[in-house]
């Protein structure tokens, strides 16, 4: 037993040597590492268990009832559309001029070979990519600043709060005056639509960062920029992606409206032009294409989210076992 309560360097040496000798004590640790599925170093858990074919068959069997119901649901919808247009139903809602599924299909077969149609699609997608991309950059940057710094919040948030309730569409006349070309004003409208959801969700994400993570970051020597980029941003990323999903939806709403009002080219313009030219089947085609493009964009965001936030999916996988 050591009599001295305080450690002179001699007794410290003694104890540290004892510590090295005692090092195998570390092997006590695996007692807490009970779960065998995470024992293989570096290997993703779960992956090797059933064979791929088995999993596909099993997956199909599990998905079959859902697949049947989906087919039934869509089939009924198209049947209803078919009969409503065939017998020209007219009871407050009028199906007199509505194109039938057959007409739509026929026109679509023609449009597939139309370069102009693809051009319209591409123009809309380009406007979305530009407007939404700029909104993402600015929304996330401003959101991080406003969420993290009181001065930025005090100076920037009032302006954004005043502008936020104005729907992007209400900006159309102003945008035409503000921007030199029609194209830039449409991109601007698209930007406005997606900017606010991204901004607000980013702010919310920053505000809900666990304070202990920020403290840990500071203790580990992170400076302000390091903290913002390596702690706050990744911690807020799930909220930011919620903002991106909402923002993408609003971007399409704003884009289509802007194209219908002030546009040249674009799938919204195509749809409105079809109405003006009494090409009623093309209206339905325009709507369907808008829906499909919107769906593809949401899917792209989800894909990007899974790519950038792998820790969330491994967590979900673990929950499934």
């Amino acid at each position: 037993m050591q009599p001295a309560p305080t450690l002179d360097s001699g007794s410290l040496h003694g104890s540290s040597q004892a510590g090295v000798a005692d090092a195998p004590g570390l092997t006590l640790a695996p007692a807490t590492q009970a779960t065998p599925q995470i024992a293989a170093p570096g290997a993703k858990p779960l992956e090797s268990m059933p064979s791929l074919a088995q999993r596909i068959v099993g997956g199909l069997r599990a998905a079959l009832p859902g697949l049947l119901m989906t087919t039934l649901s869509l089939g009924l919808f198209i049947a209803l559309w078919y009969f409503a247009t065939k017998y020209r139903w007219d009871f407050y809602i009028r199906f007199n001029n509505i194109p039938s599924p057959g007409e739509v299909l026929g026109n679509a077969a023609n449009l597939i070979h139309s370069e102009k149609f693809y051009n319209n699609m591409w123009v809309s997608v380009r406007r979305i990519l530009l407007g939404f991309g700029i909104a993402t950059g600015l929304g996330v940057a401003f959101g991080l600043l406003i969420g993290q710094y009181r001065v930025a919040r005090g100076l920037l948030l009032p302006v954004f709060e005043v502008l936020r309730p104005i729907p992007a569409i209400a900006w159309v006349p102003m945008a035409i005056m503000l921007w030199p070309t029609n194209e830039t004003s449409i991109v601007f409208i698209t930007f406005l639509g997606s900017f606010f959801p991204i901004l607000l969700n980013t702010i919310h994400g920053v505000n809900s960062v666990d304070p202990v993570l920020v403290r840990a970051g500071r203790c580990l020597g992170a400076n302000e920029l390091g903290l913002l980029r390596q702690v706050i941003l990744p911690a807020a990323l799930p909220h930011i992606f919620t903002g991106l999903t909402v923002g993408m939806g609003v971007a399409w709403v704003s884009l289509i409206a802007a194209e219908m009002i002030s546009g040249q080219y674009g799938i919204g313009y195509f749809t409105w032009e079809a109405y003006s030219l009494i090409q009623y089947a093309d209206i339905a085609i325009g709507m369907i294409v808008i829906g499909v493009l919107g769906l593809a964009c949401s899917g792209g965001i989800r894909f990007l989210g899974n790519l950038l936030m792998p820790w969330l999916t491994t967590h979900a996988n673990r929950g499934r076992t």
Binding site: L26, T27, A29, Q33, I38, P41, W311, T314, R318
Partner: peptide, 13 residues
């Protein structure tokens, strides 16, 4: 610390 086997795991695991 006897944790090398877990270097590529996420904290949630």
């Amino acid at each position: 610390a006897g944790l090398l086997a877990f270097e590529n795991h996420y904290p949630e695991q």
